[in-house]
Design a protein around this nucleic acid. Structure first.
Length: 819
DNA sequence: GACGACGACCTTTTT
DNA sequence: GGTCGTCGTC
């Protein structure tokens, strides 16, 4: 435990940490130790005399990763036994926790489903179709009366309209409304919204929104935006509930405040308006998520909302060379809307930022790959010291090819996440339906998967019967007769078969943990058979993914049990994964690789060497900015984020021609290249772009610090990680015994609790004492601090070298004593 | 209900 | 250029 951490802070960091008499706004320039300030501030709050209890502190972040890392760092300061009771997490996860506890107030159950973006889009597609049909039908009826011969015309009209009502666009508008806390009623009454819809030729959006809202409620489901909207409504309509949380959260901290939207801002205000104990940290220059509803005004005008705000500016950059910092400053200066600050670095001056011109996108790939090889030779960098950042994911392919050609290892971020894969979504849909049978999207997904002869026609009938009677699809399925379902005997039997299957799982669920019920479902639903039908590569990979999921569930249950939570239900598992993203299961640190990612996903990261590529007009800045100055400024901030990821070397490149949408296109260098003071650039020796190279920038010799790599934080996904360490552990067998090929030998599953009994759960655990060193399967080496309780309740506090302090129930803990 | 052909589409994406 | 959704055929 480190008690003198205050000494490690610079003056402004220290001031920000120790001030807590009122609202504070910490403007944290890139690389200025923002996370350090937040963690130390929380530690400081906990350790003050008459200080705060951990559960009095609410700390909100945007990513699970940020929350986890911060919690670990705080645990290092104040110990895990206190840190674990902090309310620290993403907006969405904290609010879903609150909503599950208070679900009845807003007419939900605590089992509510969380629809991901795909679910919500799929539901919207269905609703758009429905609403348009009805509208067109009504209109023709009104105009011409009942004429069956107009059916064709009706169909055509619907198809035409569907081209305008694109699900993605409709979804964005509804999401935007929710982010501004506008409910369907409010939307219908909102003149501005209606005019916007008319301008977009989509007057029916208000109806679509209303129906979407109702259908979600009917299904007992919330989308990501609803988690915010309903939290706001809960606090607004039930002052006694708000009072409870307001009294509990005596101090509220928000990370990345520049990325908050109106709803998030409003909820923070609900909680803090009265006592004003709030601290927000952020950098307006790094606000790059306005397309997701983030409103930079929240940070720009924070001091207007909280008039007594004390503002702290962290301006010393500890990450980058002076040249990189100055170049970035000269760029961001071109923005109007910002909080002025003077970021500076006291590191070496460093080398100028190299600018490369390529004739084609392919050549750009070659130039970058060659430069990487050159830098590696010259400075002995590891592969992990490099990142290639681009504006769009589509640009990654060229660089992949260039790197592959030279056998340079790389990893790509982005693309389909684990939980977005079809086979995983199918399995999860079963889980979801078992937990919440009203879940419409889960229902539609699996009613005929694996194929059981229930086709689209039947599903269509169920849907219209359900909507006509205002019940869920499940309710309609259970009582087809009462809801006037017109189906034949055979279909009826198939439907009831499905109902019985799901009901058997529901019954099963009562006395089984998530892992057991999960494997049961996968076996008995027929998913296994479907996946094992043949050994095609796709099926093999699907099988592996499902195994991965099951292993994740096993880990999840085991971990929760170790922490003293014996009954891990399917609901627990689902609510955990609903808000997980791929970034959370960091398969990242599996060695020496170059990183390829979009600038957006690079936010918050740092690399010794950064290549920002594709700096062309209509690409970076994106062609979508049009003539909107606001959008252009956001693109500029995005470029600012890109440059400030670099610690030692930064390179910018553009190509004169590029393949896009299958066509060769000509491009011109990005206007952003001209926004950077030429003093900090090393321009290519080409006519037109060439300028005198600044010799004064000098050259710095980097001290080569031996063959090290930056030690990545030991953070890890709560479970389901794909790291190699865990791959080596025995896997649970879920595949039908008839097809055991290719499967590694697996351990037996103990019938009592469903958790693997492994060799490391040895008898020696009975004699664990303080002071011993142990090796845990998951957390690695650690020292036993103390042991309390006896028998089944025996609990050890262990200080892990890489994972911080943990309290584990010996009964379940999987470790062995080492000498 | 499965499969192949054809056409429309295309930014970024913390949850 | 690559993906996804729709439509027509067996």
């Amino acid at each position: 435990m480190n008690t003198n951490y205050i000494d490690e802070l610079n003056e402004s960091q220290c001031a920000a940490v120790t001030y807590n008499d009122g609202p504070s706004l910490v403007i944290a320039g890139a690389g200025s130790g923002k996370t350090r300030v937040l963690t130390y501030k929380i530690a400081y709050l906990l350790e003050q005399e008459n200080g705060y209890n951990p559960w009095n502190i609410l700390a909100l972040t945007f990513t699970n990763k940020a929350a986890r890392e911060m919690k670990e760092r705080i645990a290092r300061q104040v110990g895990m036994e206190r840190a674990r009771y902090l309310w620290m997490g993403t907006f969405h996860s904290i609010f879903s926790r609150i909503l599950r506890a208070e679900a009845t107030f807003i007419g939900f159950t605590s089992q509510f489903t969380i629809y991901d973006t795909a679910d919500s889009k799929s539901l919207l597609t269905a609703i758009i179709d429905q609403v348009l049909r009805e509208k067109v039908h009504e209109e023709l009826l009104r105009k011409y009366g009942n004429r069956p011969d107009l059916e064709e015309k009706e169909k055509e009209k619907v198809i035409e309209l569907k081209k305008i009502y694109k699900p993605g666009v409709v979804q964005a508008r509804i999401s935007n409304a929710k982010n501004h806390l506008v409910t369907p009623t409010g939307y219908a009454a909102n003149k501005e919204a209606y005019e916007g819809d008319m301008a977009a030729k989509m007057p029916a959006i208000r109806d679509i929104y209303a129906r979407y809202w109702d259908r979600c409620r009917q299904a007992g489901a919330m989308d990501f935006d609803d988690l915010l909207v309903y939290t706001y409504i809960l606090f607004r309509d039930f002052p006694e509930v708000l009072a409870r949380y307001r009294d509990q959260f005596r101090y509220v901290l928000v990370d990345e405040y520049q990325d908050t939207n109106y709803a998030q801002h409003s909820i923070v205000l609900q909680l803090t308006k009265e006592n004003q104990r709030v601290c927000v940290v952020g950098d307006d220059a790094q606000s790059i998520y306005s397309f997701r509803g983030a409103d930079i005004d929240n940070i720009l005008y924070f001091t207007k909302i909280y008039p007594n705000t004390k503002v702290f500016k962290l301006e010393q950059n500890y990450r980058s060379t002076q040249t990189i910092v100055c170049a970035a400053n000269s760029l961001i200066e071109k923005n109007e809307r910002q909080i002025r600050k003077a970021v500076f670095s006291e590191k070496e001056k460093g080398e100028p930022i190299g600018v490369f011109q390529a004739y084609s996108d392919v050549e750009e790939g070659d130039i970058v790959a060659n430069k990487i090889a050159e830098l590696r030779r010259e400075y002995r960098y590891g592969y992990a010291d490099f990142a290639i950042l681009y504006r769009t994911n589509a640009q990654s392919r060229i660089f992949e090819e260039a790197l592959r050609k030279r056998s340079i290892p790389y990893k790509i971020y982005g693309g389909l996440s684990f939980y977005q894969r079809k086979e995983i979504k199918d399995v999860i849909a079963y889980f979801r339906l078992v937990v919440n049978p009203n879940d419409e999207e889960a229902f539609k997904r699996i009613i005929n998967y694996p194929a059981r002869g229930i086709g689209d026609t039947t599903v269509g009938k169920i849907i219209s019967a359900a909507t006509d009677h205002g019940v869920s699809l499940w309710a309609a399925l259970c009582e087809p007769l009462s809801y006037g379902l017109d189906i034949n005997k055979g279909t009826h039997a198939k439907l009831q078969g499905f109902r019985e299957l799901i009901e058997s799982f529901i019954v099963d669920q009562a006395d089984k943990n998530a892992y057991e019920i999960g494997t049961n479902i996968i076996r008995q639903s027929g998913i296994i058979n479907d996946v094992c039908q043949d050994t095609s590569p796709e099926n093999l990979s699907r099988k592996e993914n499902i195994e991965e999921l099951v292993n994740g569930m096993n880990d999840f249950c085991a971990l929760r049990q170790e922490e003293g939570n014996p009954n891990v239900s399917l609901t627990d598992f689902l609510s955990e994964i609903a808000l997980l993203t791929d970034q959370d299961s960091d398969k990242a640190d599996d060695g020496e690789r170059i990183t390829l990612m979009t600038v957006h996903s690079a936010k918050g990261l740092e690399f010794k060497n950064v290549f920002v590529v594709g700096l062309e007009e209509n690409l970076f800045p994106s062609g979508m900015v049009g003539d909107s100055p606001r959008a252009l400024e956001e693109e500029r901030r995005l470029f600012y984020v890109a440059i400030t990821r670099a610690e030692e070397h930064c390179y910018l490149s553009f190509a004169k021609t590029r393949f896009r949408y299958g066509r060769m296109e000509f491009g011109s260098p990005s206007r952003f290249l001209r926004d950077i003071d030429v003093h900090y650039l090393q321009l290519p020796h080409e006519a037109g772009v060439s300028r005198a190279v600044d010799e004064g920038a000098g050259r710095f010799r980097r001290e080569i610090e031996g063959g090290f790599t930056r030690s990545a934080s030991p953070s890890r996904a709560p479970f389901g990680s794909t790291s190699s360490e865990q791959r080596e552990r025995p896997k649970a067998q879920i595949i039908a015994p008839s097809v055991p090929r290719n499967l590694k030998k697996v351990s037996t599953v103990s019938p009592s609790n469903g958790v693997q009994a492994t060799s490391s759960t040895s008898a020696s655990i009975a004699g664990v004492q303080a002071g011993q060193m142990i090796e845990h399967e998951r957390f690695g080496l650690g020292e036993v601090i103390k042991v309390e309780g006896t028998g089944d309740n025996a609990k050890a506090t262990i200080h892990f070298k890489n994972a911080g302090d943990k309290q584990l129930l010996l009964r379940f803990a999987r470790f062995k004593v080492v000498e």
